[in-house]
Amino acid sequence: MVKTGMVDRLVLSFIYGTLILLSLSVLFPIFYVVAVSLTPFEEVLRNGGFIVVPRAITWEAYRIFLTNDRIPDAYQVTFIITVAGTLINLVLTALLAYPLSKPRLPGRKIFLLLIVFTMLFNGGIIPTYLIVKATGLLNTLWAMMIPNAVSAFNLLIMKTFYENLPESLDEAAKIDGAGEVRTLVQIVLPLSMPIMATIGLFYSVGHWNEFFQAIMYVSDTAKFPLQVVLRGILSRSQSVEELSLEETMPTESLQMAAVILTAVPIIVVYPFIQKHFTQGVLLGSIKG
């Protein structure tokens, strides 16, 4: 018995050891980013450009960002497009995915084909710009939410999820007198929280990182999302020909602080959504 205990303990300590090493290898880069963002840049350079434990701490990099006038607006814009945009995404994607998951829907194949088509081909930047302009979305926050409101990829994932819900659930609801809308809202939706959380996370990270649509469709600086503003603070002249002698290259500390400022809010949200990933899909809906 003692022997097996020893072996068990050995195996366990090996497993834990490996896991600890693995998690350290994941955590270390994050730690490094934090450390550099808090260290005076001269200190970083003095240490050959690499530091682990900061010997001196400065909030200078964060001060530069947080005292920038555009930052409060930018956080607000990003928050709005993330929350509202994700809700729009989820409502529209679910409303499209649910009917498409029903084999009895007439013309289902054609719709699916059209949707998959958009995954492979798109109109290109200029035609899309013309549509955004024609629909009056230019220079509004809508321009960052309405185009791409339904992603074909996420739609297919959601459709597959709905297809895997047992038909008998549907039938049971029907027998109890529920119509299509009631079935979707009261039966299917509560069961699909895991997929909603997953797809919602995909969408919301996308909105949080919104950059391209913002620079293409929005020119009012008050409506710039966070990433565009951070990029503006970090970038020097992009044109290689034009030198800006007055400005000093943003330091690595500044870049790392920008990483922290955009990543932390998302990291904070993760634990609250995570529980949905682990929850069983059909928890308590059908027995036997």
Binding site: D69, R70, Q76, I80, A84, D220, T221, A222, K223
Partner: peptide, 11 residues
């Protein structure tokens, strides 16, 4: 909050 009435700091 998305409307155009947000205080515009530009211009």
């Amino acid at each position: 909050g998305c409307g155009d009435n947000s205080p515009s700091s530009s211009g």
